[in-house]
Design a binder for these strands. Structure first.
Lengths: 129, 129
DNA sequence: ATTATACTGCAATATAATTGCAATATATAT
DNA sequence: ATATATATTGCAATTATATTGCAGTATAAT
């Protein structure tokens, strides 16, 4: 198995996700980390997010609309996606493990994604105006 | 309100989706329709899919991975996505309307997406080999 | 210190989808 | 049937998201 290294770039990404309960996109992560390490490249951010997600250190949240978001490895839970600004919020709903046992004939189910979609508090407020 | 027209291109797309229980992507639709109308453009396919989805004639299935798929307007139901070949299958699971009433504080929920992800029968079989 | 190789920055490329524009086709009014 | 307003089209360029080849660099083990 390929040995992995603790590079400055990778550690900055780890730290950012561990210390925030946000759900950043790769590009948001790139912009934030660029302030600490101005020479980091977008490709490095994407590659590290893949490494960390593959190793199970972080979770990739694939959204039905817009870019993927990333979360530190908290308990499995569902998310709300704003259809206007594409921000992502946690949803207080029990995670339903039995859904992973639903297998259409011949299929092998690995996991599932449930996303609520609508307007976040801010966009909902702005709509009224 | 903008009046819409029944162009040959739009009707071909309508027909294709109405007569198939598949879940084509825009590109698959483009390739299939090109056999009947070789000059149709990709842009026209995308534009018509947007028109038809916006008017509620067809349903856009936004998948967590890969391109959107399109379905004729049958009863609301859930889907299985193959993580290997990206094909989409129907899932025999009751549609849960109460999920649309789950509203994180301040949010306005409009709809939800639930997708099971894993290996379709064909890719599952090939994996064994 | 030396060294093998995982990782980086950069630029190019892939994939999915949208858009500006001039030309065309459709539906309506005549 | 004919004229006309405009929705739609084909084309090519563009946007958004993400991946990748490559030569050089940094990490961690020796």
């Amino acid at each position: 198995m390929k040995q992995s290294r603790n590079t400055q770039q990778r550690n900055l990404i780890r730290e950012l996700l561990d210390n925030n309960y946000d759900h950043f996109t790769a590009d948001e992560i790139y912009e934030i980390i660029r302030k600490k390490n101005p020479t980091i490249s977008r490709g490095t951010v994407y590659r590290n997010l893949n490494v960390l997600a593959d190793s199970g250190e972080i979770r990739r949240l694939e959204m039905p609309i817009g870019p993927d978001h990333y979360d530190c490895m908290r308990e499995n839970h569902y998310h709300f996606l704003c259809s206007k600004c594409n921000c992502v919020l946690d949803v207080d709903l029990d995670y339903n493990t039995t859904l992973n046992e639903v297998t259409p004939p011949g299929c092998k189910t690995e996991y599932h994604r449930l996303v609520l979609i609508g307007l976040c508090p801010r966009c909902n407020r702005e709509k009224e105006a």
